[in-house]
């Protein structure tokens, strides 16, 4: 567990420093993810510390978003001007973004399998 967090926090740290020193518009953690991915591809092997603990970590990723979900309450006054219209806008926009990407992926990624 200790080694796992040294890997993850270390890459996040490097990502955060890079994002700030290069003025990149992306969070340090996302840059850390790309750097770790490149490292793994170059190493062609997963260190034991990541192989064993990361899958468990990922299945519980939802836990980490509960505080943000609770935070909506704190900002409720900002939303309460038109709560229903706002919900409708977000529902429509999110579903259409999802559908556009889903259908584009479906049609482009498996042209061979759709033929009998």
């Amino acid at each position: 567990m200790i080694e796992t967090f040294i890997w993850l926090l270390g890459y996040q740290f490097v990502g955060e420093v890079l994002a700030r020193s290069l003025g990149l518009p992306v969070p340090g953690a996302v840059i850390g993810m790309l750097l770790l991915f490149i490292t793994l591809v170059l190493r062609q092997e997963l260190p034991a510390a990541l192989r064993h603990n990361v899958p468990t970590l990922m299945t519980h990723m939802s836990l980490l978003f509960i505080p943000a979900g609770v935070g909506i309450l704190a900002f409720w006054p900002l939303l309460s001007a038109h709560p229903l219209a706002m919900a409708a806008v977000l529902l429509l926009a999110t579903l259409s973004t999802f559908l556009v990407t889903l259908l584009a992926m479906k049609w482009l990624s498996q042209p061979r399998r759709t033929q009998p």
Partner: peptide, 8 residues
């Protein structure tokens, strides 16, 4: 750190 772990 969990975002970084997405690389795995």
């Amino acid at each position: 750190p969990v975002t970084v772990a997405l690389a795995v």
